[in-house]
Nucleic acid binder design. Sequence first.
DNA 1: AGCTTGTCCTGACTGC
DNA 2: TGCAGTCAGGACAAGC
Length: 272
Amino acid sequence: MPELPEVESVRRQLAPRLVGLAIDRVEADPAMPRYLRPTDAEGLTITSVERRGKYLVASLEDALDLILHLGMTGVLRWRDEDGWEPDAYVRASLHMVDPDGRPAILDFRDVRRFGTLAVTRHGEHDELPTLAALGPEPLGEDFTLAGFAAALRATGQQVKPFLLSQRPVAGVGNIYADEALWRARIHPASRRVGRARSDRLHAAIREVLAEAIEREGTTFRDYQMVNGASGRNAAFLVAYGQEGKPCPRCATAMRKTTIGGRGTTYCPGCQR
DNA sequence: AGCTTGTCCTGACTGC
DNA sequence: TGCAGTCAGGACAAGC
């Protein structure tokens, strides 16, 4: 499940090679309802490859954005490189030509079809409501203690589903929500998060995401980078997927439950 | 308007 | 061994 650290790791591998290339042709499964005008990218040069939350946003000539969301199982691979050959799960491909004249084909493999591929006018993301309403980048200066505290105070939602909504902060998914809430000692179902706990959660989100980026993401099952490598963060998880193991802080057995319809692992001993 | 629930999707896993 | 049922969770729409 690619979250911010996974998408950032992909972006860092992708950007140096992609910037400056022209997209000659886009092959995309026409049956995918979340693919919006992908062929509008044809003939246009990529000028930058940025990331907003879990979205990859490539700027194209003519003031267009090429937006890619990896969904649950999305992976990008260069055709016939690093041991990759396309299979039945490739839903879209970008056909380009490297500066040396060789074809460069980027395949988008997405087993569960939850991914998004869209071309929009630059900055006009109303067709992607979560992107349009996306909260601040957690590692940027717009993610402030006061703003985060105010957002938590204003909502009536449980704290974990609120984080997953992408509105208080961008890029936190199920893995890093569990990790950050554990680190901040906050119960994931809490509806009242005061300033002290809000500040702890703010710091915890930044820490778990920054550490995961350093380790190039968490590979639980599907996630891999553009060269096929796995992330190295899975061994450092203390909450997500750690049901039954002793809490590293208080030794209580980690418990799994469902909150907001999502599997949630937390420590009943020290997350209140 | 905002929160909650259900839906999509398909491979992996569980239990009989 | 085979097969049905369940689970996983991104975003988002429908329902309350």
